[in-house]
């Protein structure tokens, strides 16, 4: 087939000038249509000697395939060009504002409490809740705070019924209830974040309603050193790996020995600044070994069981951590402020 190369050359030349799908079809018809120049070659086959027919047929198929391929790649080229032109016309201004999805921020205290809960749950502490209207015996008596103790004076606690029913002034009654709910022979690991109430006039640093995060561990052979080690872990997780801790002697009716726990100031790292009042330390919680009377009152034999308890003020932690100066911030929900908390912690 002498003119094969010529036919393909001719086809290529024609395709070069094709710019749209219509003229591409015309070219296709001219070569591969019923009366096309390539199609016309197949009529020659009949007139060829038998021995040439096979070769010619093969040659012809090859020619058809090459021509089709040329036409197809041209088609793709044109279609891509058309699509690109179309897309270019659809271009939008991506700088226009998005559809604003609503913000779903946690309350700042809850945000902090959830973080603390996660740390404690990873250490095996259950998160337990209890009633806010509480009986005197759970809030005071079983906690080794007998009638007449200054902590119970009416100026501190909201009583609902004289000396019997009150708005809980601490979350410790949840610990009492938890211990009493066991058989007195079961280890306890729990925290009980929750609301508490005291007769304080509300101002920037006082609130009649506030949140405590108290915790309790009761087991065998638990020591004050274990409390110190546990507090170290918590402090590092909440305030960073470089956080140092210290214990100072303190006093609570339901723990003995009692300590106040300080962390090294995370702002100045111990050098002294306004946050830590130039001491380099910030007091974050009270803690101690569970008083034997409390263990006994709650059904645990203090000769067999020991444990530690601790309590953080959620507001204080949040104020320190986020640099909040007014405790009322937590209870006002200014949406311009709370929106910041619609994200994960760093």
């Amino acid at each position: 087939m002498e003119n094969k190369e010529e036919i393909l050359k001719n086809l290529k030349e024609k395709l070069d000038s094709v710019t749209n799908l219509n003229s591409l079809n015309d070219v296709k018809t001219e070569f591969l249509g019923k009366k096309g120049s390539i199609t016309a070659l197949s009529s020659i086959i009949g007139s060829l000697p038998v021995e040439e027919k096979k070769t010619f047929g093969a040659e012809l198929n090859k020619l058809k395939a090459e021509a089709t391929s040329l036409l197809e790649s041209k088609r793709e080229e044109i279609e891509t060009k058309i699509l690109n032109e179309k897309l270019a016309n659809e271009k939008i201004d991506i700088s226009l504002p998005s559809t604003k999805l609503p913000v779903g921020a946690p309350n700042i205290l809850e945000h902090l409490i959830e973080e603390v809960e996660e740390v404690f749950m990873s250490m095996g502490y259950d998160v337990v809740d209890g009633p806010e209207i509480e009986e005197d015996k759970y809030n005071f008596e079983l906690l080794n705070i007998p009638k007449g103790h200054p902590a119970r004076d009416a100026q501190d606690t909201f009583y609902i019924e004289d000396e019997t029913i009150l708005l809980r002034s601490q979350t410790s009654p949840v610990q009492v209830r938890t211990m009493l709910s066991t058989d007195g022979n079961t280890p306890v690991r729990m925290i009980c974040p929750g609301k508490t109430y005291r007769r304080d006039a509300d101002d920037a640093t006082h609130s009649h309603q506030f949140m405590q995060i108290e915790g309790l561990l009761v087991d065998k052979n638990i020591s004050l050193s274990d409390l110190k080690g546990t507090f170290d872990v918590i402090a590092k997780k909440l305030f960073g790996e470089d956080c140092r801790t210290r214990f100072r002697p303190s006093y609570y009716q339901f723990t003995e020995p009692s300590v106040e726990t300080d962390i090294s100031c995370f702002k100045c790292h111990g050098e002294g600044c306004s946050l830590c009042k130039n001491t380099g330390w910030i007091t974050v919680s009270g803690a101690g070994m569970v008083h034997p009377n409390v263990l006994r009152n709650c059904g645990y034999d203090p000769n067999v069981w020991s444990g530690f308890a601790f309590g953080f003020g959620a507001e204080r932690l949040a104020m320190l951590k986020y640099g909040i100066n007014d405790i009322r911030t937590f209870y006002q929900t200014d949406l311009r402020e709370s929106a910041t908390f619609d994200r994960k912690e760093a």
């Binding site: 250490m123 095996g124 998160v127 729990m190 052979n221 050193s225 274990d226 214990f247 300590v259």
Partner: peptide, 23 residues
């Protein structure tokens, strides 16, 4: 002196805590 205490961790089984009740 509490500052002289060592930091230890209670020797107790590890587990993950749960939310109890309606928490």
């Amino acid at each position: 002196g509490y500052h002289n205490l060592e930091s230890t961790l209670p020797v107790i089984p590890t587990r993950r805590g749960v939310y109890v009740g309606d928490v």
